[in-house]
């Protein structure tokens, strides 16, 4: 029997409405009849499939639509055209520390973020998060605003990985944290990979991508220009910038 893809994109277009002129005033509304918002297409005709257990890296220059693609997979934005099919539970880790409340303590934040992600909060899972983040009880009782960037990243990363999901979406978040924690994260990712879960990973470092992914996708101005093994795509990604230097 042929395996069902976990994620399937069929001719997906995503548009944003943008206000190119910045502030739109009453004067503009009276003097010109044009609509203040301009439609901008971020993703154009995206079609791809991800099979279960595949580890997909996504590369591309800034503004090529990587984050938009991830948000579409996570279901945060809906496509203006096309169809997106997702089979499985998604753990989106799109921005580290999104939803963290600076005035509240670490423990309160753990509970808040778990509930916001739709999980049940119990003592066991809080302990598990504390253990993984290697932050002590005293730190977690402090307000999060007194944390360093690395500590914040530890906390956020630990919360995101607390629950088991089928698909993990990771948006260039390994850049923070000290060496020990980075290694721990990569170990965690390898562990997830061995369990056969799917990982979608955005990185600007081709070496990291080759290390963590087997398949990759290269985006350029909202279109897929390459899809294949991570090694091949990483080479192509490097070429993209060499051409620009000439």
């Amino acid at each position: 029997m042929k395996q069902q893809p976990v994620i399937k994109f069929e001719h997906v277009f995503i548009d944003y409405r943008q206000n190119p002129a910045g502030v739109y005033s009453i004067k503009d509304a009276i003097t010109s009849w044009s609509h203040p918002f301009r439609k901008q297409t971020i993703l154009k005709d995206i079609t791809f499939e991800i099979m279960p257990g595949e580890h997909l890296g996504i590369a591309g220059r800034n503004g090529s639509g990587k984050s938009t693609l991830l948000r579409a997979i996570a279901g945060i934005i809906k496509p203006s055209k096309g169809r997106i099919q997702v089979n499985g539970k998604i753990a989106p880790i799109l921005a580290l520390g999104a939803g963290l409340e600076l005035e509240m303590t670490g423990y309160e934040n753990i509970r808040l973020l778990l509930s916001l992600n739709g999980h049940q909060v119990n003592h066991q899972i809080v302990n598990q998060i504390q253990h993984f983040s290697e932050l002590d009880e005293q730190t977690l009782n402090q307000a999060v605003k007194s944390y360093s960037t690395g500590m914040l990243a530890r906390l956020a990363f630990s919360i995101s990985f607390a629950h088991e999901s089928d698909i993990y979406i990771i948006d260039e978040i390994l850049a923070v944290g000290d060496l020990g924690f980075q290694q721990k994260c990569i170990e965690k990712i390898h562990e997830i990979q061995q369990k056969g879960h799917t990982i979608i990973f955005v990185s600007h470092f081709p070496a990291e991508m080759v290390n963590l992914c087997n398949q990759a996708l290269l985006l350029e101005q909202g279109e897929i220009i390459d899809r294949g093994s991570a090694k091949k795509v990483a080479e192509k990604y490097k070429e993209l910038f060499e051409l620009n230097h000439d």
Partner: peptide, 9 residues
């Protein structure tokens, strides 16, 4: 807006 953009809520 930050939360809306990165969590499915």
């Amino acid at each position: 807006s930050g939360i809306i953009k990165s969590l499915k809520l």
